[in-house]
């Protein structure tokens, strides 16, 4: 359960994506500050995606999942703890690193606070949804690409509302509605999706 390894890669990936964007779109600071919230959200989302297959793969390979499944712990609890572990090792560092990378992209000053808030609210949903995807593909040999294909459509609502909060924050607009909807999605996924993940994992362990 502990001691996975390779989670720091997500942070490095986030940094690289953000560094590459100006090379792609040009160095004009006006353009960069317009797209900064969206790029930062997208970068965080992709960095999150990168480490998803590590959530369960190690425990699958060494047989721990079988043993955990026959232990007194409920499967729903196991997947929830897994998602929490993923958030602590991936989501939280991304949230903390985002403002620093915001400087690189010339993010407008009022945007920093809302960027952190939106990421802090949104990344737990990304981890929980990602755990569902990891549970779906855990037994597959080439599961990595499939995992992305399955998880990315599920990420869409979170991305839309999260980036909307960050963008409106940067532009100084009212953002109560998307913030509430983002929080709603996160709470909903945390409350309900572990049941689906646990069911999927039980099927995969048969």
């Amino acid at each position: 359960m502990r001691a996975g390894g390779g989670f720091g890669l997500g942070l490095a990936f986030f940094l690289i994506v953000v560094v590459l964007v100006p090379f792609g779109v040009g160095p004009q600071s006006a353009l960069l500050s317009t797209i900064a919230p969206g790029i930062l959200w997208l970068g965080a989302l992709l960095a999150c995606l990168l480490s998803l297959d590590r959530i369960l793969a190690l425990d699958w390979e060494d047989g721990s999942l079988d043993l955990l499944a026959t232990s007194p712990l409920p499967m729903e609890g196991i997947v929830s703890v897994k998602a929490l572990a993923h958030w602590l090792t991936t989501g939280l560092p991304l949230v903390l690193a985002a403002p620093v990378l915001g400087i690189l992209l010339n993010l407008p000053a009022p945007g920093f606070g809302w960027l952190v808030v939106s990421l802090a609210l949104g990344t737990p949903a990304l981890s929980v949804i990602g755990t569902f995807g990891a549970a779906l593909t855990v037994g597959l040999k080439r599961g990595g690409l499939l995992l992305s294909l399955l998880v990315l459509p599920l990420y869409m609502p979170t991305l839309i509302f999260g980036a909307e909060v960050a963008r409106r924050g940067a532009e100084g607009m009212a953002l109560g509605t998307p913030l509430a909807l983002l929080a709603g999605i996160t709470c909903g996924t945390i409350a309900l999706l572990p049941f689906a993940s646990a069911a999927v994992l039980r099927v995969n362990l048969r």
């Binding site: 609502p157 839309i160 509302f161 509605t177 909807l181």
Partner: peptide, 19 residues
């Protein structure tokens, strides 16, 4: 199970996109 979960998220996406 993916179809069930996906349906919920597809519906969410529909409203998210409208918004």
């Amino acid at each position: 199970i993916l179809c069930l979960v996906g349906s919920v998220f597809a519906l969410l996406s529909r409203y998210a996109v409208n918004f």
